[in-house]
Design a protein around this nucleic acid. Structure first.
Lengths: 194, 194
DNA sequence: TTTTTTGTTGATTGACGAGTCAATAAACTT
DNA sequence: AAGTTTATTGACTCGTCAATCAACAAAAAA
């Protein structure tokens, strides 16, 4: 009994299932069969809607990225001062969501994919540019012309801290990560006015 | 015509071939057959010496790590002042070697593997501890008791800068990476004495 | 010299997996 | 009512691959 308009439902189900399976496996070593099964359909249907495995993966990455983007926008909307803007970006970047196993796994494998798959590389660029733009905007009032290079450094620091926290033994602590980046920035900004 | 004492020769050949193949594929999606072929032997022999695919991968990771360690030690040996120590660590971390395609690929996949394979996680810990110890030692004269947490931040910054540089479009520029971390440190250390 | 250890591979096994196809069925169009 | 589009799947193809085995060869030990 084919109900019409299934395409978006099936596609989101597949994307969610893909992210869950990547989290379970810790890698992209996931079969279309596993994804389809978790999404409650046949492998043939998964192929029907996405055409191939790589496109399923890319859709999943796009989804992760859009979740992160929404989180940042949401936090940013309520921020009035530059300091609040910065904190909003950091809180969103180190939120509990981003430390969930599936999300960590997605990001790490995203980096691997970005080496060779043009689509993944493009998505990574989108993330990096957006982060850089947000940081520059927030830092401009404090750092003026020094904002762009400082944003570069803070962006790298965020990625590095995330990487370490995500791969640490203990359950990841977003608050500590935020504090670390903030203390770095505090000194850095103080330095500017000397 | 079996010459004796082949084991170490075969093993190093396999490790090198593994790293090259990982670089070629950009992932761990590499067959034992490809590795064995590049190393000039049969798949059966690869299994004979290593027992399985995972052990080949771990040996390759160990090799990458030992190369990096040797590079750091070499640079550190010549450094007399704390500043020179720091620079040595940075130069080694952002050397051309570490930006070669195979090495980048090995590191990225290493992170992925560290999520699920205990052996890989252990190796990652070794790298992190060693870096932290080296940084703390170099920073102690300048930062005193503040050295350990500062070393933590610098370590994360190094990883983050490496990640970005390794995945950037343009050929990676080690010198710029070193400069970025150094300028961060300069401000940070100046801040301490205020 | 027999035996054991070390090196080596072709061939095979057994399993899995991506993608295709033909077929079925319900809904929507004309 | 006939035709078209959308949804859906079981079965199949074709390929790959990790791991094992049996067998051969040469050096070292006994």
């Amino acid at each position: 009994m084919p109900k019409l308009g299934m395409e978006p439902i099936r596609k989101t189900a597949l994307v969610k299932a893909t992210i869950m399976e990547i989290g379970r496996a810790g890698s992209l070593d996931v079969t279309v069969g596993q994804i389809a099964k978790r999404a409650g359909m046949s492998t043939a249907l998964a192929h029907h809607y996405f055409g191939g495995k790589e496109q399923i993966f890319l859709a999943a990455m796009r989804h992760i990225l859009s979740l992160y983007g929404a989180e940042v926008r949401g936090a940013l909307a309520a921020a009035r001062t530059p300091e609040a803007r910065l904190e909003a970006i950091l809180l969103a970047s180190f939120s509990a969501t981003n430390f969930r196993r599936e999300v960590v796994s997605a990001w790490l494998n995203f980096y691997v994919l970005a080496q060779t798959v043009p689509g993944a590389r493009r998505l990574l660029r989108v993330y990096q540019r957006r982060l850089h733009a947000n940081l520059t905007h927030a830092l401009r009032p404090m750092a003026g012309a020094g904002a762009p290079p400082l944003a570069e450094a803070v962006g790298a620091l965020i990625d590095g801290v995330y990487l370490r926290e995500a791969l640490s033994e203990r359950p990841s602590d977003g608050r500590a990560s935020v504090a670390m980046v903030q203390s770095y920035l505090a000194t850095e900004l103080k330095g500017l006015s000397i």
